[in-house]
Each structure stands twice: as structure tokens, then as C-alpha cells.
Write a protein that binds this DNA or RNA. Structure first.
Lengths: 182, 182
DNA sequence: TAAATTAGTCAACACTTGTTGGCAAAATTG
DNA sequence: CAATTTTGCCAACAAGTGTTGACTAATTTA
């Protein structure tokens, strides 16, 4: 039961750093300190291992008791905490790194959006506009993650957390409560 | 001289759809209607072909005569036109699709940001804050491109151009002239 | 302790990858 | 027309891919 976890953490690390295609089963085996064949025996296939490891939980329901007027900064702060937290965002980086060139990862990404982001946004404002507002929120959050954690644009990497919370939080706030200007 | 162009367009298409790693030299050859070996003879290597094809031009200098109070919507409209225009954004999609899992593509992406986005933003506002403001602008624009053209989040794909121009344009406008609230 | 199950390694498989060299056909040049 | 260069295809290469089966060592169970 110790090797199973070793494989999981090695896979998470390598998928996060290099994406699905550039990560080889042999690399994972080497980092986990076991034979590559064990990976297949434990998880069935490389794809199954990826699916098992790329299941992030944004825990947006933690924001249930925040009132609508301060939801913007709260979302951004929460989002940054997840990404900077334990094991590279609990699978978020694994997913985003691969989603651009791996159709299954992209599908999973759309699933995360539909089941985790959209419902959280639907809690505030008019339900009919929830998809649009969630789409805008998603575009800004994914852009933040891409530039800061995946592409590593120098100015975005260098930004202090509190600066991001303020500047981008204001944007999210406006997107989430866009009804007033529609 | 006809095959060279056939290879270029086939490569652009396939790199745009599948990214660098999932696109094979044999696939390109098949779509271009020639033998895979010709690709190496014309461009030297798969990497060199990618580099040759992934050189987008955002043409942000076209926005020189827009005054600072309407730069936000202008940038978004321009950005969308490039992406939706001929051959999938003139290399932008090729680059973004691969940049998440290919280090060289990511480096190229940072180059585009440094040489094309940053100078355009530096034209308005205080020069010392240009990097920060450009970083924010970049995060929103890349997020828009990712969600609409790469990941294909349904609500973002469905948004009419004019809606995007208005809602995201306002954000870009604020980011570009952020000096006033710092 | 004996039997049965689990954990692990090793070598090899079938396949795909980018790339190369040789050779025929076509086009260009003199 | 003859000579030469260009254009193209074919077959094969060396290396790397995910995956499998056989076989040993360790561990758990009875």
C-alpha cells in the first residue's frame, strides 16, 4: 500500500511539470522507485492513472457563507490558496497542463467547470445569466492560472498575492454580479 | 515551391488542433499529400518546422491611433479578429495549444508577451507600472483564448463577439489604466 | 510451519516516433 | 538534345512508447 501512494505522488508531480504526453510510464516508475510494470498492475493503464490523479476539487462550496458583495476577492483568494497549496493545487495543475493538447483532459476541465464553477456562480444573481457570468469568471481565473503557474509570465509570477486579490478580485466581483449592467 | 506551402498549412492546422506532441511528422505528410521525409528535407526537423509556423503577429501597433479612454474594447475586438481570422489566428492557436506542455513553445509565448503586449501597454500610463498592467491584461486575454478557442467552455464559445467586447473590454480598460487606483 | 497470496523484477512484445540514405522521375539549365 | 539539378518516394534505421507474461521473493493466512 506504500507503493500505490508513491506512484500517485510521482505521477502528480510529473504530470504537473510536463503534461500527459511528455510524461512516460518509465519516468513515473523511476521517480517512484519501482518497476514501470507495477504502474499498469496497480492502475490498469497510463490513462487510468492520469484520470485517477487529475480529479481536482476546487471546494467552492466553502464560500457559502460569504455575502454577495465580497464574493470577488474571496474567490480569488480561495483559488490562489488551492493552487499554491499542497501538491500543486490538488490536481488542478495536472489537468490544466494537459488540457490544451489532450482531448480527454479538456473534457474533464469542462466537467470541473460545469459541476463546480457554474453552481457556485448560480448562487448569486439571476439564474438565466449564470452560464454567461460563470463563463466570464472562468476565463479570468483560467487566464490567471495559465499565466502564473503554467506559462510563467514574469510579471504575473512576481505579483504579490494581495495585489492579485485586489485587482483581479474586482473583476470577478463585476463578472459575478453582471446582471446590473445588462 | 508548392509543396513547401502545403506542408506549412498542413502543419499549422494539425499543430493548432492537436498541439506539438500529438502531431506526428507522418500526419503532416499525409495531410499535405507528400512523403514525411520531405518535411525534414524542407525544414530540417519537426522542431524547426514548428518554430517556423508558430510565429504569430498580434499587430497591436495597429492600435496606435486609439486614444487611451477606448483602448480596452479596441484591444479585445482586435484580439478576437486575429483569433477568428485567417488560418486560426496566424499562429496564435498553434502556440497556445502547445505552450502548456512544451517548454520551447512556452518560451516563445513569453517572448510574444515581452515584445508585443508589453510595449503596447507601456504606451499608456506610467512606465514603471507597465509590466504589472500588461501582466493583468495578458492574464485576461489568454484566459479568453483558452476558454473560447482551446478548451471550448460552452458558455464562452457561445458568447457573441459584441458581448465579449463590452464585458471583457471594460476589464482590459481598467487593467491598462490601473494607475489611478494604485 | 505449510500454503496461498501479494509485491516485485526482468525481459520482451508490438508499435510508433523522428530521421536518414539511396534511387528514380521530373524539371531546369547549357 | 544532353547534363545537371531539383523533387519526390521507398525502405529502413535507432530509439522510445505502453503493455504483457513468466518467474522469484516476500508477506500474509491457515
Amino acid at each position: 500500500m506504500r507503493t500505490r501512494e508513491a506512484i500517485e505522488t510521482a505521477a502528480k508531480q510529473l504530470f504537473s511539470e510536463n503534461g500527459y504526453e511528455r510524461t512516460t510510464v518509465r519516468d513515473i516508475g523511476t521517480r517512484a522507485g519501482i518497476d514501470p510494470s507495477m504502474i499498469i498492475r496497480y492502475f490498469g493503464s497510463k490513462e487510468a492513472l492520469f484520470a485517477h490523479v487529475a480529479t481536482p476539487d476546487l471546494r467552492l462550496l466553502d464560500l457559502n457563507n460569504i455575502d454577495g458583495t465580497a464574493i470577488g476577492e474571496a474567490i480569488v483568494r480561495h483559488f490562489l490558496a488551492i493552487w499554491e497549496g499542497e501538491q500543486s493545487g490538488g490536481g488542478m495543475q495536472v489537468l490544466l497542463r494537459s488540457a490544451a493538447s489532450n482531448p480527454e483532459a479538456a473534457e474533464r476541465m469542462r466537467g470541473i467547470f460545469a459541476t463546480q464553477v457554474l453552481p457556485a456562480i448560480a448562487r448569486v444573481g439571476r439564474p438565466e445569466t449564470a452560464a454567461l457570468r460563470a463563463g466570464l469568471v472562468g476565463s479570468q481565473l483560467i487566464g490567471l492560472a495559465m499565466t502564473r503557474y503554467v506559462l510563467g509570465l514574469p510579471p504575473v509570477v512576481a505579483m504579490p498575492v494581495e495585489f492579485i486579490v485586489r485587482s483581479i478580485g474586482k473583476t470577478i466581483q463585476r463578472y459575478a454580479s453582471l446582471d446590473e449592467e445588462m
